[in-house]
Amino acid sequence: MAVTDDAIERIKGMILGGELRPGDRLPREAELSAALGLSRNSLREAVRALALINVLDVRQGDGTYVSSLEPGVMLDAMTFVVDVQRDDSLLEFLEVRRLLEPPATSMATLRMGEAEIAGLADLLDELGPDPSVEDLVANDQEFHRRIALGAGNSVLASLIESFSGPLHRARVWRGLTQEAATTRTLAEHRAIQQAMAARQHDVAHAWAQVHVAGVEQWLRSVSAARRAGSGASAPGT
């Protein structure tokens, strides 16, 4: 289990065990990390992940609170968890994305102008050395959007763009919970851009395939771990 996953489970345990109730404010970061035996960075990432699915409410300048946990709030959280952890629709989206994006990247390598390809490098430079997960995901989506448009086929670009919404929160969740996901994503984006700059369409195709397959592999591993933990058979999804 990744360190952030462990932190998430510990905070959830405090809520389920009644140590933290709806509306309660979490102890200060230093106190809570010491009590749970976690690094402050791991705790911070866990809080961000739980805030993403509305279990926690981060109030700037005030602190972090357990949400109301009312049915409506939990329904939204449950919908997100189902979106991420049930391998049904998301894996199918990723499989199609793996079929479409590498060829689109190859086409874009041959059709995009020098300035447009250089602009991809500038886009990556905007992130800086330690981007937030939210900034990384926004940058990731723009990176792939530009390449899809650069392929010069509006139908193909529209198909790829249609996957952006369904996969957005899964990308965020991966960035929060998978160790080294940010570093890996940036390195793969750089490799794609550099291959495109060198007009090596086959190399760009290969890196794009590796990149998309990595996300798919992560989701499969999450699904497998969930099933192993629950002892349940694979859902018919």
Rank of each mutant, 00 (worst) to 15 (best):
V3Y: 05
T4N: 11
E9G: 09
M14Q: 07
M14Y: 11
I15V: 15
G18T: 05
E19R: 11
L20N: 00
P22G: 04
G23H: 04
D24L: 13
L26E: 03
R28M: 06
E29C: 06
A30S: 11
E31I: 08
L32M: 07
A35N: 07
G37T: 11
G37I: 13
R40V: 13
S42P: 01
E45S: 10
A46R: 06
V47D: 01
R48F: 00
A49I: 03
A49E: 03
N54M: 08
V55Y: 14
D57N: 12
G61L: 02
G63W: 04
V66P: 01
S67I: 04
E70V: 06
E70L: 12
G72Y: 08
V73A: 11
M74T: 05
M74D: 11
L75H: 06
L75G: 06
D76N: 12
M78K: 09
V82P: 00
D83V: 04
R86H: 11
D88H: 10
L90M: 13
L91H: 07
E92H: 13
E95F: 13
R98K: 10
P102R: 10
P103C: 03
A104E: 05
A108P: 15
A108C: 11
T109F: 03
T109W: 01
T109N: 05
R111Q: 07
G113W: 15
E114D: 14
L120P: 06
A121K: 10
L123S: 05
L124A: 10
L127I: 06
L127A: 12
P129C: 12
D135W: 10
D135Q: 14
L136T: 01
L136V: 04
V137Q: 02
D140K: 09
H144G: 10
R146I: 09
L159E: 11
E161H: 07
S162R: 07
S162H: 04
P166T: 08
L167S: 01
R169D: 15
R174V: 13
G175T: 14
A181W: 15
T182N: 03
T182L: 04
T182H: 02
T183F: 10
T183V: 14
R184D: 15
T185V: 14
A187W: 09
R190F: 02
H205R: 15
A206F: 14
H211I: 04
V212E: 04
Q217H: 12
W218L: 13
L219F: 08
L219C: 13
L219G: 06
R220M: 13
A224C: 04
A224E: 10
A225Q: 14
A228L: 12
G231D: 15
A234V: 10
T237L: 11
